[in-house]
Design a binder for these strands. Structure first.
Lengths: 340, 340
DNA sequence: ACTGGCACTCGATCTCGCGGAGTGCCAGCC
DNA sequence: GGCTGGCACTCCGCGAGATCGAGTGCCAGT
């Protein structure tokens, strides 16, 4: 069964009205608010078909219709027109991101901005280490048997780890170590780092081998295990908008999910900087997020994504507006990173 | 009017029962659950007095009694016995904090641990820069006109900032700069840094003066403006426990307050590592937190606090348990920092 | 000073009735 | 064949009683 144009138009009208009013929408209200050029009875027939196809449903017999997840999906894919940002929004984005002084600041500002503009929960992943390249590695002596390893990436992330050395190590040796690891790793992508790190140990001169082994262990941990881990979150208060209506008893599991970094990171697991991904209700992998929709995309200098960002809200959200905002913010952040 | 022992005992019983059941407690239930050795009628008389003094109140005429903020205050100050941690809790704390690899990790684990143990919202302030000392400053050349300034403190915090230099600067000059700032600042407390930084500019040789000026500007910003800013949060989902009962429509403003770092930081503004502060309901400075209680303390190596931590929950909370947990966690974290 | 008894209050819960929005269906119309 | 007006029907939401019971305040008695 293929839906004719008017039925699609009816679906669009239902989605738009429901998103705006948050109340089931009936046939009469529909023809009044949208100039569909047909009578309520006709619309009712169309609605019956749409319901049969699973795009809308009735909360109770003889109430208005509400879009289903499937209905939203069709709306997003076929029916929604791109809603350009208002100049005010563009200005807000620019102003907000302009004053950022470092990566932490950029991420913080971005996540707050997104939450504010979309009035939903915003999530920003820090530039992933595995998609970054090493800019510089620094070793700072804390004592003769302790070094602080500081790794700086081209995306501005700075990771530090304490290294315990097996035996006292002189300053000159630290200098050699520093030189060796920088020669090997500086400018290289972190995805290729593990092999290089192993090589470092193999190539080390005997005197430095024990120290280098400790160092390599810590480096590997940093590069492999902690590669993706950081996430910033804002706007959780927005989950309580719409009162009990949106999430009812579901608020708790959602807040819990939002504190699980593992879950959030999976939202960005396959991002690239040009595609925008939308998960509507059921389409979410995680049980606890089935009452929500997630709009996410990658960001980065150019077209390669170094991280992801997005928003999470009720399935009943303003998709065109949200999509436009997420896209725009991602682009601005990407540009900002490119300037570094 | 001074309250006799039995009245105080009645107040304690009311607080304990109300915290446990979350329901207004009546005279009959009281004598049944606590062996007060008197009849309900007597308890009723006592309750009338307690109510007159403002320690308890009735949600509605002829319902049970509920403690007021003032009642909780009296309970906390005079009536609550210290509740020692269970061995299981001690073990949980140790196990949780043992695996931490760096400061970020310590803070993250701590905040999650606190949230889990108290089943409330946990807040941990990163070691405040102003109470830390500089361990090392590192300059990394990004290009001939750009440096990355990395500051490492004795509490393990690492701050980085990009510095734009007014003109191209050779590697040897960078070395001189690095040496100069480390000589002047390493080992010094950040609270005394501003004066030292100004001196750096004054003492710089002419060739380095412009670069040093840029550097000093950024350093000052880092030390002064960003000194306190970082906060970690966990357990917001716990706010939804007790359903609508605890916070009703107040959830929203509370979540909003929790996203305002300024507000959270004020909670720790006067902490020291040995005192524990409790703000009950009304006693909170912030309007939006008047429905909550905050238990906070400082932590740090020894008795000087380098930061604060605490939990936030409904005024109806298990104060003895919460206090014990917050104290214990703060002590463990302090010890952990001392080991570095 | 404490207790038992008793009348009273008032929130919570249930039912009932009603109004209204919205539907499905049918017969008629273009 | 598709659209429309009409109509009976369903069921939610809401307010008005009615009932129940927990808990109280007060008083007289010990």
């Amino acid at each position: 069964m293929t839906l004719d144009d008017r039925k699609l138009e009816v679906l669009r009208a239902i989605v738009e009205d429901y998103v705006a009013t948050q109340e089931p929408v009936g046939s009469k209200a529909l023809v009044e608010r949208h100039h569909l050029g047909v009578s309520p009875a006709t619309v009712r027939n169309d609605m019956a078909v749409l319901e049969e196809e699973g795009y809308i449903r009735q909360p109770h017999t003889s109430a208005g219709r509400v879009p289903t997840d499937r209905g939203y999906r069709l709306f997003v894919d076929k029916l929604s027109r791109i809603k350009p940002l208002t100049p005010a929004e563009r200005r807000a984005i620019e102003r907000f991101l302009l004053g950022a002084v470092d990566l932490d600041d950029v991420v913080h500002r971005t996540v707050r901005l997104l939450a504010q503009l979309t009035r939903q929960v915003a999530i920003v992943q820090y530039p992933s280490l595995s998609r970054s390249a090493v800019r510089h590695l620094e070793l700072v002596s804390i004592s003769t048997t302790r070094l602080l390893l500081v790794m700086i990436t081209d995306t501005g992330r700075v990771e530090q780890r304490l290294v315990e050395l097996p035996k006292p190590t002189a300053a000159s040796q630290v200098t050699s170590l520093r030189q060796a690891i920088n020669e090997k790793l500086a400018g290289r992508r972190l995805s290729e780092a593990p092999g290089l790190i192993h090589a470092l140990v193999d190539e080390a001169v005997d005197a430095l081998r024990p120290a280098m082994t400790s160092l390599a262990t810590v480096l590997l941990e940093t590069v492999v295990e902690r590669a993706e881990e950081r996430i910033a979150l804002a706007g959780t208060a927005n989950l309580t908008r719409g009162g009990v209506l949106d999430f009812q008893g579901m608020l708790r599991p959602i807040l819990e999910a939002l504190e699980e970094e593992v879950i959030l990171l999976k939202l960005f697991s396959e991002v690239d900087a040009t595609t925008l991904r939308i998960r509507i209700g059921d389409e979410n992998e995680f049980e606890d997020l089935r009452a929500t929709s997630v709009v996410s995309t990658g960001y980065g200098p150019g077209t390669t994504a170094v991280g992801g960002l997005g928003v999470l809200g009720p399935t009943r959200m303003d998709y065109p507006g949200t999509i436009a905002t997420v896209r725009a913010v991602a682009r601005y952040v990407g540009d900002l990173l490119a300037q570094n």
